[in-house]
């Protein structure tokens, strides 16, 4: 089942990135420290942006990129909030 059509290749790549997300999720669960988990979820967020971009190309739906942009911004915000929380306990924003 090697894809030949260019859109199929994009979708196939997206599926592989989702599989990689499961691999990263192992790190988020196994830890052992909160920093490991935070980093794993941050990479997962970047991964999500890539998946959404691949889906946008593969399904010819350019508005997927809007959601990818929102996620890129909010993923950064989430990482900053959790980092700040772990460094100075209680300070979030």
């Amino acid at each position: 089942m090697i894809p030949t059509d260019i859109n199929e290749i994009f979708l196939f790549a997206a599926a592989i990135f989702v599989l990689l997300a499961i691999a990263m999720f192992y790190r988020a669960v196994a830890g052992p420290t909160t920093q490991d988990r935070l980093l794993a979820v941050n990479v997962l967020g970047t991964n999500t942006v890539v998946i959404l971009a691949l889906l946008a190309a593969g399904l010819d739906q350019p508005w997927f990129l809007d959601i990818a942009l929102i996620y890129a911004l909010l993923n950064f915000l989430m990482a900053v909030a959790i980092s700040k929380f772990t460094v100075e306990r209680g300070g979030v924003l």
Binding site: V18, A21, F25, A28, V29, G31, T34, R37, L38, A40, V41, L44, G45, N47, T48, I51, L52, L55, F64, I67, Y71, N75, M78, I82, F85, T86
Partner: peptide, 21 residues
């Protein structure tokens, strides 16, 4: 650990967003 649960919940939300898309 609640902090770990929050972090993993972020991962859940990422998956849901792709599914909705």
């Amino acid at each position: 650990d609640v902090l770990s649960a929050i972090v993993v919940f972020g991962a859940y939300s990422l998956g849901m967003a792709i599914l909705y898309t």
